[in-house]
């Protein structure tokens, strides 16, 4: 579904990715781990189309209408409509924009792109309700008056991450990139978020988990684990690789 060939990228004029290769097929979960500064966040920003991150070489091909197409020149919203979703490491607060309005507009934008008719507010509310239930967030969020608030307004770090997963459920992307979703979460939040992600897994979609620690991978079991170092993927393995990293640290693996 996703094929990255020899990707080179820079931010603020500094090269960060120096020839990254990765192949992700539908139905798979890939974990990408690496020390700080290895380029993990850059990869997620590049895939979602952040304007400050520039591709300087290589290819990124994504399956659209059963054909591999390059997405390098596609803008962020176009990519989202094609089914790419980034769960941010630090979700931004947008206080003036209402959660419900925002989600509804997003969902309808994707729907229209796929050729379907948009949902009315009433219809969307029912849909959203179901998704909140599925993610185990319904009671919690409704209590907090979620629908009336601004996006991530006044949310704690954990709540923001939960909101990201809810958005993922609503938009049903084909490729979800979770950027250090586990950072700052306590055990309960981690469980809820992981269960949510697991429920959304299917043979038609794929997940890239970017994480620092092995802990998340106990909850969301990856099919492949990659180690990213100095802008390249230097080692690939199965889930055991994560355990090895835990035991020996990055230095142990990279030497």
């Amino acid at each position: 579904m996703l094929e990255i060939k020899n990707l080179k990228a820079e931010v603020d004029g500094k090269p960060v990715l120096k020839g990254l290769n990765l192949k992700v097929n539908a139905g798979e979960v890939h974990a990408i781990m690496g020390p700080n500064g290895s380029g993990k966040s850059t990869l997620s920003k590049i895939l979602s189309g952040h304007p400050n991150y520039v591709v300087t070489g290589g290819e990124i091909n994504f399956e659209i209408n059963f054909q591999q197409k390059s997405i390098i020149d596609m803008e962020a919203d176009e990519r989202a409509k094609e089914g790419i979703f980034l769960a941010f490491q630090y979700p931004v607060e947008v206080p003036g924009v209402n959660n419900l309005t925002f989600l509804m507009n997003s969902f309808n934008a994707v729907l229209e792109h796929q050729g379907s008719l948009p949902l009315s507010e009433e219809e969307f509310k029912i849909y959203l309700d179901k998704k909140m239930e599925l993610m185990g967030l319904r009671e919690d969020f409704l209590k907090k008056g979620f629908m009336d608030r601004g996006v991530n307004s006044g949310f704690s770090g954990g709540e923001k991450k939960k909101n990201e997963i809810l958005q993922m459920a609503v938009l049903a992307p084909r490729l979800a990139i979770l950027d250090e979703t586990d950072s700052g979460l306590d055990i309960d939040a981690l469980r809820i978020v992981s269960e949510g992600v697991n429920k959304l897994r299917s043979s038609k979609n794929a997940v890239i988990l970017i994480t620092h620690y092995q802990r998340l991978l106990d909850y969301i079991k990856p099919d492949f684990v990659h180690v990213l170092s100095q802008g390249r993927i230097v080692k690939t393995g199965g889930p055991e690789l994560a355990h090895e990293l835990e035991k020996n640290g990055y230095d142990g693996i990279l030497s």
Binding site: K81, L86, A109
Partner: peptide, 13 residues
């Protein structure tokens, strides 16, 4: 800018 990107990453034009 960050707010703009966040919304666009959710399919909004």
């Amino acid at each position: 800018e960050e707010e703009l990107f966040y919304l666009r990453s959710r399919a909004l034009s």
